[in-house]
Design a binder for these strands. Structure first.
Lengths: 322, 322
DNA sequence: TTGTATGCGTTATCAG
DNA sequence: CTGATAACGCATACAA
């Protein structure tokens, strides 16, 4: 009767195989103390009935329902995607269920998702930060979270080397290739990292090396790069550094349309697409996948032994296309 | 003593607020039968101690740990991404935890993930199919899964209108624009949908309309489109249909380099990128987001009342760029 | 309206 | 080596 309810428990398996609940439990948990023959007997029944122990029940007994939340800004962000792809295998390996959520750059959504994760009693969170996200929101998670792409005091963060990336590009263009007139197309400064940090790095380098700055700031889109191209060309630079691959794409398109392909374009990202369409672009890679790996491993170690907060900066690397 | 262990239970809350466990439970579950005053009393304690009932324990009591697995081929696939983004909000709304996994086009990985989900007692699965994936693998999930992008008998599937998309493009080029020499660059036929189906649709249309076919098949990459461009041009087509946006990108690049921009390019996908770089490309949209919505809703209704398997084909729509 | 007792499916402790 | 039995944290029929 009650056996028909499709949902078998160890109790049923016990009855079916003529042993006690305890023994079934032992078999399930690979207790070495059970005799070969009984183990086989029980295993047979388990296989036959396709039995799987109730996850909820064993979770209650400590065999944790380990889940960690990953809050990305957008699922289709190339950079975050790469980082997430690096995290997942690590998380799985340690028996965690990653649940991925989109914030869509909305603080409200983050809050909403965070309380949801709290209710679900998630063990930890990885959050991709964005402009406007205040650390106060995250206070509850302080000891069990890692923040991506931004550095907050008292939190564990994994950052990209925005400044280093820009500087590397500039040094290469200026010192190795002897460009003197180097322009910059970036993102408006209300974006703290991709915007302000990269712009500042450019301005700083200019000042320290007596280069007269030639910079324009727009937004994250391809179009922005395209539209700002004309302005920046008025000072006839021989090289232009772009804050992102998307901007470089737009710029390259403009240069191509106007037969200005002798101008060197440099950018940050190293996306496959840019590399294919405009292989001459000089690029520096920020290390998104490495960042993902760091983040996952760091969170895991935080969850085991309470380590103290630190900020990891992933090194950027200059790419030489063949 | 034992109260210090940070992990409070309703028992503790009960003691703290001078009521019984049951009453606390009632408050938590919004039982309307509890008196205002006692509710407030208990709520106060709950707030004060930031108490959250054990997820696992209440899961065991039926307040289910609803989780559904989403197996994508690659997290960074544009099309799947779009579909997934449409699914998530729906799933959340109904209290399900989506857990996203990558198959990386490997049957073994799918199998591995599927048993993992089975162990976790996931309630349902959405799988993005790929060439080589056999329905036999999915037998266990038959009544609680939806397959994306491919149609298997006896399973609930959400497919794209590959044939319709190609036909729409051809009809427009041939009948409205009177092109007579229309080429095709596709994917090799071992890919059943993007490859074989779209190719067949092209061949069929050619045969039915006395167009002499001019088709080449490669792989999914930008480069493939670029490399096949030369071959296809030998028959000097006036329009070329591409199986995907990526191919169209490659083709467009070749045409641009060789000043052949008078040749009309058509493709399937309608990605923002292609639209920006080569706005003259004629595109048809497959409806990835709509597919995601369908899939999620369908799975949800399957999980409630056991409906019978059906295949939904998402209609494609021709896009007119301004 | 509230408290008591019981059960959910496991695992852990202790005898046997 | 195995079998009773007591937890685990919560929900609920039943009693008060």
């Amino acid at each position: 009767m009650s056996e028909f309810s499709n949902h078998l428990t160890i109790k049923d398996i016990a009855k079916l195989s003529g042993v006690s609940k305890s023994t079934v439990s032992r078999v399930i948990n690979h207790d070495p103390m059970v005799k070969e023959t009984t183990r086989n007997k029980v295993m047979a029944i388990i296989e036959q009935y396709q039995f799987t122990p109730s996850k909820s029940a064993r979770a209650m007994r400590g065999y944790g329902n380990k889940v960690i939340g990953i809050v990305v800004t957008r699922l289709d962000s190339m950079s975050e995607n790469q980082a997430v792809r690096a995290m997942l295998p690590i998380l799985y390996q340690y028996g965690y269920d990653p649940i991925i959520i989109e914030s869509q750059f909305s603080v409200d959504k983050v809050e909403e998702h965070l309380t949801m994760l709290k209710e679900k009693q998630a063990d930890g969170v990885i959050i991709f930060a964005f402009t406007g996200l205040e650390p106060s929101l995250l206070s509850f998670w302080k000891s069990k979270s890692v923040i991506m792409a931004r550095s907050y005091p008292d939190f564990t963060c994994v950052c990209y080397d925005d400044i280093g990336a820009v500087t590397t590009l500039l040094e290469y263009l200026h010192q190795s290739k002897h460009h003197q007139k180097i322009g910059f197309i970036g993102i408006e400064q209300h974006d703290q990292t991709t915007g302000a940090l990269r712009y500042q790095a450019y301005m700083d380098y200019c000042q320290q090396n007596q280069i007269s700055p030639n910079a324009y700031l727009g937004n994250l889109s391809y179009r922005s790069g395209y539209e700002l191209a004309q302005s920046i060309l008025s000072l006839s630079p021989t090289a232009i550094v772009c804050a992102t691959d998307a901007i470089a794409l737009g710029l390259n398109k403009y240069l191509q349309q106007n037969q200005l392909e002798h101008i060197v374009v440099a950018s940050i990202g190293n996306s496959e697409l840019l590399n294919f369409l405009f292989p001459n672009t000089l690029t520096v890679e920020l290390g998104f996948d490495k960042a993902g790996t760091y983040a996952a491993k760091e969170l895991l170690s935080m969850l085991q032994n309470t380590t103290l907060a630190k900020t990891i900066t992933v090194p950027s690397t200059l790419i030489f296309n063949e």
